[in-house]
Design a protein around this nucleic acid. Sequence first.
RNA 1: GGGCGUAUAGCUCAGUGGUAGAGCACUAUGUUGACAUCGUAGGGGUCCCAAGUUCGAACCUUGGUACGCCCA
Length: 928
Amino acid sequence: MTRELDKTFDPAAIEAKWYSHWEQTGAFRPERPDAEAFTIVNPPPNVTGSLHIGHALDNTLQDIVIRYERLRGKDALWVVGTDHAGIATQMVVERQLEERQDKRTNYSRDDFVAKVWEWKEESGGTITRQLRRLGCSMDWSREQFTMDEHFTKAVLKVFVDLYNDGLIYRDKRLVNWDPKLKTAISDLEVETRDVNGHMWHFKYPLEGGQTYTYVERDEDGNVVLEEERDYISIATTRPETMLGDGAVAVHPDDARYAPIVGKLCEIPVGPKEHRRLIPIITDEYPDPDFGSGAVKITGAHDENDFGVAQRNGIPMYRLMDEVAAMRSDGAPYAEAARRAIEIARGDTLDAAEVDALNLVPDEYRGLDRYEARKKVVADIDAEGLMIMVEDKKIAQPFGDRGGVVIEPMLMDQWYVAAKELAKRPIAAVKSGEIEIVPATWEKTFFNWMENIQPWCVSRQLWWGHRIPAWYDADGKVYVAMTEEEAQAQAGDGVALTRDEDVLDTWFSSALWPFATLGWPDNTDLVQKHYPNSLLISGFDILFFWDARMMMAGYYNMDERPWEKLYLHGLVRAADGSKMSKSKGNVVDPLGLIDQYGADALRFFMAAMESQGRDIKMDEKRVEGYRNFATKLWNAARFCQSNGVGLSKHIAAPDARMAANQWIIGELAQTAETLEKAMAELRFDAAANTIYHFVWDRFCDWYLELIKPVLQGDPDTDAAKETRAVAGWALDQILVMLHPFMPFVTEELWNSRGHPHDLIVGEWVNPQASVNKAATDAIDWVIDLTTATRSARNELGISPSEKLAAFIEAPSGLAASVIERSSAAIERLARLSPITVGEAPAGAAMQVAAGSDTFIVPLEGVIDVGAERARLEKALVASQKEAKSLEGRLSNANFVERAKPEAVEKARADHAHHVAEVERLKAALERLG
RNA sequence: GGGCGUAUAGCUCAGUGGUAGAGCACUAUGUUGACAUCGUAGGGGUCCCAAGUUCGAACCUUGGUACGCCCA
């Protein structure tokens, strides 16, 4: 059944229809039990998310590959689902509560989590609906969620296994604490930004007013400063952390401070009578050339200080609470300070006792860290102990979700031994077992993986996978899949409490390539579709997700997660800046779909996706691809109205006519180029190949060439053959274009009356090759047509007027084409009649095709001067070329050392231009 | 401080050693029953700079310059 097509393609009219048809008929995952597997897992978008332009790129590329492989007969599985996105989702729901003057802590944990689930059921489907609008052919029948029951089981199993293997452990170290979200986050979730700040220089007085001679020398050892000091000068960007100092450190080689190493100095803040004393120690960390060369050591609030404190057994005093305000718990300051002085004088305490000690002076307690900073500075200044303050750019850590300054805090968290897990992924990429495309990313990958730090995976949230660890009254931990198992480990009657924390979202999404297939059960899907074939992701989640999938894949499955990792760039705004809500330059992909159709947006994404480069948004280009869809639409319409039917066979029909043989050869070549591009994941090359074949070859030349045949007697063999070839070629175009433009191709395919849908069709296989004679003939016609049009244009002769042409001594090619294809020449070049023989004398236009010259008498019509100018211009150009080639060919070095084919080509080009020069000279002579 | 990338027509970008390309924009033009979301013809480039390798460099090497990104 064929259906008549409208004059203009209206994407909106067909997209929804085809999508639901495909989904309802199960076309996204046809039953192909015996076929080779091809598997992609979709990077699960946040369940809170909505489709942004980056998703549009990422998913378009995946859909192109999966549709391509489906057409090629593979058992193509595209796994889809959403991520519970711990922090992001909890934030969304908490914000909703806030709008109603409500808050999370008004609820029990279970009730709050129930509320999140409720929200997820109601609003979680936004992005999945939007992916459908883009035409993405995922297997929705098995839609996954990282907190599905089976997925949760997988997460717990991995945690328990890692724990039993010693690869997950609890540790007290500095974590990145987000005081807004009140949770620890991983290093990757911290963004370091340079901000304007200050460097304060303070005097730390020596104990009991002791003095020493401070001597400063220049590079040559000359004394530039010598004075008696009763203090040591300390520079800091964070004065509020002074309250937690455990020592002052100087470099062991720093002669300036050698006299006072081992002595005590006073932290110049807090009530005078309880000033804390801390030792002056040596460590390699302080840089003698930076600041004063002396560094205060606050092990509990600075990464570098933490290292110094650990090496030197310096106590680390925690100063802040969960919102980064100065602590107000514990004993009064006087008592705490007394204990601290005992410690400084050699008393030892265990870590828990140190942690319990609140060394914030009473008047600072409860202050926000920045308020405390102001007060510390003011108090020291008032005491006359501030030396100076400089303006300085400070590299400051921010939480990528909460957007506030991260506070390093010393606390217990769960860590994954990432270094160990990184070993096999590193080896796999080195050996080529996993290929990263483009390969330039390998260096970045190695650099990160080889310097990987323990991964903090516990989060102080409610929404997520709760850590399967239980503690008894003594704090002993029992890790197990269930509370029953933990109880069994602990023994009957031991009271257990479960760890309050949940796991980092990326801990679970790392399992996506196999947990979505049913693992830990050994399902058929796991058997057949793990390892996956390919992963496509933005480079921005290379470490967050891709690298961790590798770790999880090798650890749990003992195999790579996928054969290939394709990394694409960012979609940027038209001016090249990053799109962001705050800048207001975000382009909504759905708006583009509304305006130009999903096919146009998809084609844009593909055509712009060259490896290793970001994509700049260019709406004109999207519009151009909308036009391309319309062009194809109209070509199909033309075929339809000329009785061109559908093809019965995938192989090219038999053809005797040059135009038909030619298009078959061109199509075979196109298919080959396209397949090569797809194999190399060169989406731009693939898109451009099919684009130019459709527009330049098929529409501009082939359809024009066959018009005379189609519009003549329909019952001739030539007409029948032409309809068969045209129908076949159009069908092959629809197949090749389908991965890129699924909607318009499916609509056209069905309008042509095919018995099955294109989405489950068969990939092209022309079983034909280029016919040299046909190519020569058609190239000759194209040559002649182009030359004639150009000459007419330059001479101001109407493009439509038919002109008589003469050719004196046609080449064999010319003679045969003139005989067989005069109708095409008449139609395209508008030369008719063509007479073999001498042209009448008089002014004429002369055009060339190959080595043949046509004389078109135009006595009294053309401006002879203009024609002469035209010919002379061409003559000069050919002479220049000929001369340049002659120079090259007369260079012995070139002839002897260049590749033979290069020499051959130069000779051929030279001969051509020499002939052209002769021809043009003759033409000019004829003109008189 | 370390690493990576980019620089080609007015704009957005292809081009992996043989002498420069596409789309858009621009100029001129409008003809045939698919298409004006179209057709035809045309103008437009020190391929960032410098040196080197080579018979030959947009492409390879080295050193700059500018812009961007990542890590510390």
